[in-house]
């Protein structure tokens, strides 16, 4: 009796599972109503808001959004497992060739701008950092440096003032899988790295996380720490962190990151945010196309500002919409 009672539902369950399994593909995003978005944790809040709003008028759609990081996102995207990949940097050549090998065709859509905020704990006395300052504590040449002052020799050599304070230095920042990491290298370090014939990377010996919130937690717990995250996360963190003003050259103008300085390009460390859409899937799945249509409207405006990013100017917005309609 007892066993039969247990076995019957088990069998029924197995049958149902097998029946559904036959019609479903492995990715789980093959059906029209299923949309899977993965990629940058920086862009994730925008996509989450668009999905949330789109669902209100399309209750049949099932959109799942995750944020493992831009690099991991592209890996999934080029394996054909996701419909849309959030990215906080443009796709790399090797990622693009991955996609090509697997026959994945995509369109790149710029959706907003994010400044990268350079931060420390709330009690840090420094106000302004220059690119050479950051180079001297984050480049591969700075490996092993655990005190700001230890970087002074290098700092002076790359055009800095050479008077960094004698205080312990702990760095927490996004890891390699993150678009924020790549953008930081590209904007802040790359020129100096090339000039000094270094690999295009950072020092590896710092704490890294794919979760911007964990980074902020770590930075805020130590007054002489150093790190960077997207402007949106830094602004959300409020007074728990100190956000530096930035100048490109030592002694140049120090610009604090604000929505205005980022939008008008006067703040030097800003980057574009993208979504990549699998165009073949968009052609197969009308709801996916509809979702991206909606993204081009609500996503570029309300979702971007609600997520505390800076919206594109009118010309760039028109360009993005043209790219989508001309896919």
């Amino acid at each position: 009796m007892k066993l039969r009672f247990l076995l019957t539902p088990m069998l029924a369950f197995a049958l149902i599972a097998a029946a559904c399994g036959g019609s479903d593909d492995a990715g789980g995003s093959g059906e029209d109503g299923e949309i899977f978005v993965s990629g940058s944790s920086t862009v994730e809040p925008i996509s989450v808001r668009v999905a949330d709003e789109f669902f209100k008028t399309n209750p049949d759609v099932n959109i799942a959004v995750n944020g493992p990081g831009t690099g991991d996102g592209f890996k999934l995207f080029c394996d054909g497992e996701t419909d849309i990949s959030d990215a906080s940097r443009a796709i790399k050549d090797e990622e693009a060739s991955d996609c090509e090998e697997n026959g994945i065709n995509w369109v790149e859509l710029k959706v907003g701008i994010d400044g990268i905020a350079i931060m420390s704990g709330p009690g840090n006395p420094i106000e302004c950092l220059s690119f050479p300052d950051m180079y001297s504590i984050t480049s591969p040449e700075a490996e092993g440096v655990q005190n700001w002052a230890d970087a002074n020799e290098l700092n002076a050599a790359v055009g800095g003032s050479g008077d960094l304070p004698d205080a312990p230095l702990t760095i927490t920042a996004p890891g390699q899988e993150s678009g924020t990491y790549a953008s930081f290298i590209e904007i802040v370090l790359e020129d100096l790295l090339e000039e000094r014939e270094q690999d295009i990377t950072t020092r590896f010996d710092y704490q890294s996380s794919a979760n911007d919130n964990i980074i902020i937690n770590n930075i805020s717990s130590d007054d002489t720490s150093f790190g960077w995250v997207g402007f949106a996360f830094a602004e959300e963190a409020g007074d728990s962190v100190k956000v530096f003003s930035i100048s490109e050259e030592e002694g140049g103008d120090c610009i604090a990151p604000t929505a205005e300085t980022i939008a008008d390009n006067s703040y030097p460390i800003a980057r574009d945010l993208f979504i990549y859409v699998n165009v073949d899937k968009a052609a197969e799945k009308p709801l996916l196309a509809e979702f991206v249509d909606f993204y081009m409207d609500y996503g570029l405006t309300t979702a971007v500002t609600d997520s505390k990013y800076v919206p594109l100017d009118d010309a760039a917005m028109a360009e993005t919409r043209a790219a989508w309609s001309g896919r």
Binding site: G28, E44, S47, A51, F54, F55, V61, G67
Partner: peptide, 21 residues
Amino acid sequence: TISGIITRSAPWYDVTQVQDR
């Protein structure tokens, strides 16, 4: 598991959700 968002919440009795994210 998903931590960002999943828009649909299938009804409790819908067993096909065992194959979804």
